[in-house]
Design a protein around this nucleic acid. Structure first.
Lengths: 137, 137
DNA sequence: CCATATACCGAAAAAATTTTCGGTATATGA
DNA sequence: TCATATACCGAAAATTTTTTCGGTATATGG
C-alpha cells in the first residue's frame, strides 16, 4: 500500500519506439503539441545549460562540461547527455584509449535550438532584478 | 527508514523570501544563471501552455482554460496558475459572486515571455516530423 | 429536492527527476 | 605502491511534480 511507491524504482524498461529514459514514463509526452514537444527536449534541469556550453560547435569532454556546470551532479549530466544524444541534439565520439576519452558535440538539430536558448538567456538577464528582489538572498 | 519518504509530503511550509510552492524546495533555483531563472518560470508541465492561452491579453476564467487544455488535471492548473501569479506573470481578478467567478490575465511581464513561447511553438512545428517518426504512434 | 456548475483547496498517492553512493577499468605521476 | 584522473553505469534514496480524490459553498434549472 505504502511501500508500493518505492517498488516502482525497479521499473526500468524500454518499450519499442518509446523515448529512451532511465525509466519509462507512464504518461507520454503529447508530440502533437509543438510547445510541449519543444519543452520536453530541454526542460530537464541542465539540458539547456549543456546546449549552451556546446554552442560553439567545438567538441567537449564530459569532464570539461562538469567543470563548466559545477553545481550539476555528474551523474545527471551523464543521463541528460545520453538523452540529448537519443533525441539527436548532441553527438558523441568515443576514443578507444585508456584512460577513457570521449567528446560531445552539438548537432545541427541541437544548434537550431540555440536561438531559443539565447532568448531565454537575454530574458533572464533583463529581468534578473525583479526576481533577485523577490526571491534572492 | 523507508516510510520517511512518504512523511515528506507533510512539509508544506513557506519561508520568508522563498518562492511560493505547494512544497518547499530543498535545493533552490540559482537565480544568478539567467537561463535557469527563465526556465524555472516556465518549465512546469503546463505553464508555457497557459501563457500561450492567455497571450491575447483577454482575461479567461479557469473553466475556459481547462477546456482549452483538456489533458491537464484541473488541480495542476490551479497550482500552476497560482505560481504564475506569485511570479508576476499572470494576474487574477475575483468577482464577489455566487457561484464563484474569477478571471486570469497575462501581465506585461508574462507577455514579455511570449516571443520565447512563439519560438518554441515554431521550432516544434518545424521539427515535428523528426520526432513523430522517432517516437510517434 | 436533486443534480449541475462554479472556483478552490487539503491530503495522499503516484509518477518523474535528481542525487548519492559505490563500483568498473587502466594509465600516469608522486 | 598509492592516490588521482578518466568515463561510465547500476541501484537506491531523496526530492520534486503531478494526479487523484474528496470536500467547501451556493445559485440555477429540472
Amino acid at each position: 500500500m505504502v511501500v508500493r511507491q518505492l517498488l516502482i524504482n525497479f521499473a526500468v524498461v524500454k518499450r519499442k519506439n518509446y523515448r529512451l529514459m532511465a525509466y519509462e514514463k507512464k504518461i507520454p509526452v503529447d508530440l502533437d503539441c509543438p510547445l510541449r514537444l519543444t519543452m520536453s527536449l530541454i526542460e530537464s534541469k541542465w539540458k539547456s545549460c549543456i546546449l549552451d556550453e556546446l554552442r560553439s560547435g567545438e567538441p567537449m569532454r564530459p569532464s570539461e562540461i562538469h567543470k563548466c556546470l559545477p553545481e550539476a551532479a555528474p551523474r545527471v549530466l551523464d543521463i541528460q547527455l545520453k538523452e540529448l544524444i537519443e533525441d539527436g541534439l548532441v553527438e558523441k565520439k568515443i576514443f578507444p584509449e585508456l584512460p577513457p576519452r570521449s567528446e560531445y558535440k552539438i548537432t545541427p538539430l541541437g544548434a537550431s535550438l540555440i536561438p531559443i536558448v539565447d532568448q531565454m538567456l537575454k530574458w533572464g538577464e533583463d529581468h534578473y532584478d525583479i526576481f533577485e528582489k523577490k526571491y534572492g538572498k
